[in-house]
């Protein structure tokens, strides 16, 4: 049983209780993915599994045998920040930085979701691909809580990213 994380294969833990989040943080010292509630209520542990955003805290690692995980550590290209990371800094879309990795991973996935025309609960017409306006972005980012109130900067960063990369 192996799982691939940021391109690197790892043996899965033998204790079935271990979540993907605790596996990465406590067994692999991959601390970039954060624990904010451990119950699927904050989004701080958002990672991509085969390109889709999920919550690592609710994912028992054993269930993801053979799957490929991307975390915040897998985003930058060496010294160069991913463009979305750079935009978060530019627009000051962060304060304490704790929810930030989850926000960024969520926004990366959101970009893909717009690309395939996925609707959201604020999409007016389900038959037409949604336009990435601010309300759509806000709704789609609502699964990532931020207590520092850095919302405006994040939405600014994501809006810029979507306009430059879609």
């Amino acid at each position: 049983m192996t799982i691939t994380i940021n391109g690197q294969p790892y043996d899965l833990p033998t204790d079935a209780r271990v979540s993907l989040l605790d596996f990465m943080r406590e067994r692999l010292d991959l601390f970039g993915t954060k624990k904010g509630c451990n119950q699927g209520a904050c989004g701080a542990c958002t990672v991509l599994i085969d390109g889709e955003r999920v919550l690592a805290c609710l994912a028992l690692a054993a269930q993801y045998d053979g799957r490929s995980v991307t975390t915040i550590e897998g985003l930058a290209d060496g010294e160069d920040l991913h463009p979305l990371q750079a935009l978060f800094v530019k627009h000051d879309g962060l304060q304490c930085g704790y929810c930030t990795p989850g926000q960024i991973m969520s926004a990366i996935a959101l970009s893909n979701e717009f690309s395939r025309g996925a609707p959201s609960s604020v999409t007016t017409d389900l038959d037409v691909p949604a336009t990435p306006n601010r309300e759509e972005i806000r709704e789609r980012m609502s699964g990532n809580l931020c207590r520092c109130g850095a919302h405006n900067g994040m939405i600014e960063a994501i809006t810029s990213y979507l306009s430059e990369h879609s």
């Binding site: 699927g40 989004g43 958002t46 889709e52 955003r53 999920v54 919550l55 609710l58 994912a59 969520s106 996935a109 959101l110 979701e113 609707p119 959201s120 609960s121 999409t123 389900l126 038959d127 789609r140 609502s142 699964g143 990532n144």
Partner: peptide, 23 residues
């Protein structure tokens, strides 16, 4: 689903978060 059962699509989309709906 979107074309023939829109209430189902909307109900799902109003629930939880994108991450949880993906799982």
């Amino acid at each position: 689903v979107r074309a023939r059962y829109p209430a189902l699509a909307r109900a799902i989309l109003s629930g939880a978060s994108a991450q949880i709906r993906n799982m």
